[in-house]
């Protein structure tokens, strides 16, 4: 150190420049193509070069070398740091069976947050029942929640039944619409939970009331059996996913309102990491629902088959959410309760 401290800046640069340039080239290549694309020699060289440049930076700062040199070293060290301390390999934290663990992570998260999800279900299904009852009692109630011009043709369409089925083009169009619309609703329903949970709660209430009223209106026009047949196939997935996304939003909001022993920010971030898997799962559920709704629910398959399939999906979903991942329950590091 004593010797080094008397090295003047130019000599220092001259001596170290070659290493810096070597690291610079490596960093550039690694940040373009990923660290995995570096050859073995480069990877072996990377770590010592990075440590050296950290020492060089410390030396340059201590010796008060000129600002551009310090900035250069700092920039290079920061870039190398970004490469070296990159993410842990994307699959490592999922263990040796990444797919299996992903499939289990979702139902585990659902069970962990069952109270929030129960609340979300109440926030959705109570207005749903209310909307249904009100619209059955007085069909014009539905017009306050959805335009009359949309509801009347809807009721007529359901009254016709499904004997004719739907054209394949229509099915594909509706699949796109369901993904765009329903997944969007669920994601937004989650995101607005950050406003203390109020956004999610309002979204759930409003959607529950509107969907209930629409179903009630169609039923009051004498197409109740038909709309039930239509909904039963995808309903458990679709409505379940909206409740899960909304519940995830409630968890997020509650973490802000009642952070416990953490700071509000830390609590929010912890909740965010917890619920992101719920949102991902809900999105997958909605995409499956979109496929079923577009290609199956409106098809000319006999009513009985549709209902049995719907019940089967409901039971399978229930079993998956309540049982999957229980037996080989690995304690997750994020589990706090």
């Amino acid at each position: 150190m004593a010797i080094a401290s008397h090295v003047n800046e130019n000599a220092f640069c001259e001596r170290r420049q070659r290493d810096w340039e070597e690291l610079d080239v490596m960093v550039l290549r690694a940040s373009r193509m990923g660290v995995k694309k570096l050859d073995t020699d480069a990877i072996l060289r990377f770590s010592p070069l990075y440590r050296d440049i950290c020492a060089d930076l410390a030396r340059a700062q201590a010796a008060r070398y000129s600002a551009p040199l310090v900035d250069y070293l700092q920039g290079l060290a920061a870039a190398a740091h970004t490469v070296l301390y990159g993410l842990p390999s994307r699959t490592r934290h999922l263990g040796d069976q990444p797919f299996r663990n992903l499939v289990y992570a979702f139902p585990r998260a659902v069970r962990r947050h069952r109270r929030a999800l129960l609340l979300a279900a109440c926030l959705f299904f109570i207005p749903f029942a209310a909307g249904l009852a009100l619209a059955l009692h007085d069909p014009t109630f539905a017009f306050r929640l959805a335009p009359e011009g949309m509801l009347k043709p809807l009721a007529e369409a359901y009254a016709k039944g499904f004997e004719e089925g739907r054209a394949n083009g229509d099915n594909a169009m509706m699949a796109g619409f369901y993904i765009h619309n329903n997944v969007g609703i669920a994601l937004r329903c989650f995101a607005l939970g950050i406003l203390g949970g109020l956004g999610s709660a309002l979204y759930l209430l409003q959607n529950g009331l509107a969907i209930g009223a629409i179903v009630g209106y169609v039923a009051s026009k004498g197409a109740g059996q038909n709309i039930l047949t239509f909904i039963v196939g995808h309903g458990s997935l679709e409505l379940g996913a909206i409740v899960i996304a909304g519940g995830a939003g409630l968890v997020l909001g509650y973490s802000l309102v009642s952070p416990g022993e953490k700071t509000r920010l830390a609590s929010l971030q912890a909740a965010g990491r917890e619920v992101v898997v719920l949102v991902a799962g809900a999105s997958v559920m909605l995409m499956m629902a979109a496929g079923i709704e577009a290609f199956w629910s409106g098809s000319s398959v006999p009513t009985l088959v549709k209902r049995i399939t719907g019940a089967t999906i409901f039971v399978l979903l229930g079993l998956y959410l309540t049982l999957a991942g229980r037996a080989s329950r690995a304690p997750s590091p994020r589990e706090s309760r």
């Binding site: 054209a167 083009g169 229509d170 594909a172 169009m173 699949a175 993904i179």
Partner: peptide, 29 residues
């Protein structure tokens, strides 16, 4: 495609609309 197969209802075109909606969804989210 719809015109060439003489499909007046425009089945292909509607499927294209569906694809466009999925594209919009992907763009947004």
């Amino acid at each position: 495609g719809s015109i060439s197969v003489g499909d007046e209802v425009g089945g292909f075109f509607k499927a294209g609309l569906g694809l466009t909606l999925i594209l919009l969804f992907l763009a947004q989210w």
